[in-house]
Design a protein around this nucleic acid. Structure first.
Length: 429
DNA sequence: TCTGGGGTCCTAGGACCC
DNA sequence: TCTGGGGTCCTAGGACCC
């Protein structure tokens, strides 16, 4: 009996990807319990040897050291991860150009209709790609083949690690009967809880409901699409190429303890704007719009959305615009715990057209590092002694140390905070 | 665990217009 | 001028993902 696939969609998922990459880069780590994310204080990725010790993702490092002193905590290396990711995409592309780079450790491929070209069944093609990935990268992969992305996702995590699972149409019900509704990609915690409370604990129970039931219970397009995909319909397409292009740039940071001091909160926001601009310039982009927000101690958000007069990539000029509207979100007597900024409507540098009044020309000349501080300082005057004093800090020789300390800042640092955080403001690079 | 950081997509609802 | 119906466009915010 030939297995039937209306579409042949494959999902590849690197097993314990970060930890595995680090084990490949350093052979002394192989076969050992490796944990990454030490710099954050909790585990980001764990090797299978580490998982076998009962350790799990999100576990505090302190606890890990207590439970498993033999565990090796290694700093993250995002450059290495992305090199491996690119190799992974390249290998899959040797078989088909229809590859979606979904994330740093996952991709989808559409191999529909390729049996004749390779003289193999879909299952054989998939096995062939899987073996090549594992041999070339030294990382094992969970691989799933089905007729939709959602089903392929179910398949790739069905057997771990190094699993290969096929879900042709005739096996859908069997597999989904063993798939918890919480584990279905796209439904999330809220949707999963809701379905569970409606008496739908598995994906099989879900696909057995009809369209009317979905509508009556308030399920909308994203859930309906997932429902269709689980039934085997190809709804969510494999998106070739487009991934990797940046649509928006965001920077957010929580600070502790929370604060109600306007100048401090504004400086936090400045820091985020600066960091976002660094990323923006690195990508050769400028933003025509942005939004910024303050997050209160109660986890409510207050945001302002604004268009920029011209496309910008420098923090100083964005901050001028932001300052004018900062008080729309900031209120005295309220404790805030985080700020954030999102740069949107991005355009490439080359596509930028100078505006009518020569603003563009003026801006080109203003690329000095201290420009931002000078202008802000002049603008705010006495009301922001804070910024003025930070200017001194910026020019002080111990800048590198101050920057470094910022990472793990402690309560004591708070007393001196004003001179610690501000160096970030206006360092244009 | 009193709740990280960086993204995308969808939708309800307001503004505006016939 | 008022009322109602019905489009379109835009945005804020929610939910989800890794």
């Amino acid at each position: 009996m030939a297995a039937s696939y209306p579409k042949a969609i494959v999902h590849f998922d690197g097993d314990a990807f970060f930890a595995s990459v680090l084990q490949m880069m350093d052979h002394t780590l192989r076969g050992k319990p490796v944990i990454t994310g030490g710099e954050r204080g909790s585990a980001t990725s764990l090797s299978y040897e580490a998982k076998a010790l009962g350790l799990h993702r999100g576990m505090p490092m302190q606890e890990i050291r207590r439970i498993a002193p033999e565990a090796i905590i290694v700093p993250s290396d995002y450059t290495a991860y992305s090199i491996y990711a690119r190799r992974m995409y390249a290998i899959v592309r040797e078989f088909t150009p229809k590859v979606e780079e979904y994330s740093i450790d996952e991709c989808f491929a559409d191999i529909t209709g390729l049996e004749d070209a390779f003289g193999m069944t879909y299952a054989e093609i998939v096995l062939c790609i899987k073996q090549k990935l594992e041999q070339s990268l030294g990382v094992t992969f969970g691989v799933g083949l089905a007729s939709s992305k959602t089903l392929a996702k179910v398949a790739s995590k069905y057997h771990k690690p190094a699993g290969l699972t096929l879900i042709p149409t005739e096996r859908i019900e069997e597999i989904l009967g063993q798939t918890a509704i919480y584990d279905v990609w796209g439904l999330g915690g809220v949707g999963g809880t809701k379905l569970n409370s409606l008496g739908v604990p598995t994906a099989l129970d879900f696909i057995r409901k009809d369209d009317g039931w979905l509508k009556d219970n308030g399920f909308v397009k994203p859930q309906r699409d997932t429902w269709l995909e689980l039934k085997g319909y190809y709804i969510n397409p494999v998106r070739v190429g487009k991934h990797g292009e940046i649509g928006s740039v965001m920077k957010t940071r929580t600070f502790s303890p929370p604060s109600m001091e306007r100048s401090f909160i504004f400086s936090q926001l400045s820091k985020n704007v600066e960091a976002a601009c660094v990323k923006l310039r690195r990508a050769g982009l400028k933003a025509r719009a942005l939004s910024f927000y303050l997050k209160t101690q109660e986890f409510t958000y207050h945001a302002v959305q604004m268009d920029l007069p011209v496309a910008l990539s420098t923090a100083s000029e964005m901050l001028e615009c932001i300052e004018k509207r900062f008080d729309e979100v900031y209120a005295t007597e309220i404790l805030y715990r985080a700020t954030g900024v999102t740069l949107r409507a991005l355009v490439t540098d080359s596509a930028l057209t100078p505006d009518l009044f020569g603003e563009f020309e003026k801006r080109v000349q203003k690329n000095g590092s201290f420009d931002a501080l000078d202008r802000l300082n002049k603008k705010y005057g006495n009301s922001t002694v804070f910024l003025a004093s930070s200017l001194q800090a910026l020019r002080a020789p111990e800048l590198p140390r101050a920057r470094k300390r910022r990472k793990g800042f402690l309560r004591q640092d708070l007393e001196h905070k004003k001179s610690l955080d501000i160096p970030f403001l206006g360092i244009a690079r």
